[in-house]
């Protein structure tokens, strides 16, 4: 089995979409690093710089960035 791509997810604590995205990754057996941008200002800045977005969740898979919980796109990127 090939090594899993590095996954980072930027979230806020009560955001339902963020929760759903994390649950989805877990259910597929993927591990990820979760940054809470509500409490971590540096990571919030990093997320905005990387994605140009001020919206969560932002999911980074390898070099690719997904804004929002886009299940189809997550599947595509993790299938490669």
């Amino acid at each position: 089995m090939p090594e899993q791509k590095n996954i980072i997810i930027y979230t806020t604590p009560v955001c339902p979409w963020c929760h759903r995205a994390k649950e989805y990754l877990s259910s597929k057996g993927f591990s990820y690093t979760d940054y809470d941008v509500a409490s971590d200002k540096e990571k919030a800045k990093e997320m905005i710089q990387k994605s140009g977005q001020m919206a969560v969740p932002v999911i980074v898979i390898g070099e690719e960035i997904i804004v929002g919980f886009n299940q189809t796109r997550i599947d595509e990127l993790l299938a490669k």
């Binding site: 806020t12 604590p13 009560v14 955001c15 339902p16 979409w17 963020c18 941008v37 509500a38 200002k41 919030a44 905005i48 140009g52 977005q53 001020m54 919206a55 969560v56 804004v67």
Partner: peptide, 17 residues
């Protein structure tokens, strides 16, 4: 939209602390 305009305050609100 996504650059400061949001339709989900409960999601994106904390970014604007």
């Amino acid at each position: 939209t996504g650059h400061g305009v949001s339709y989900c305050a409960v999601c994106d609100g904390p970014i604007f602390a």
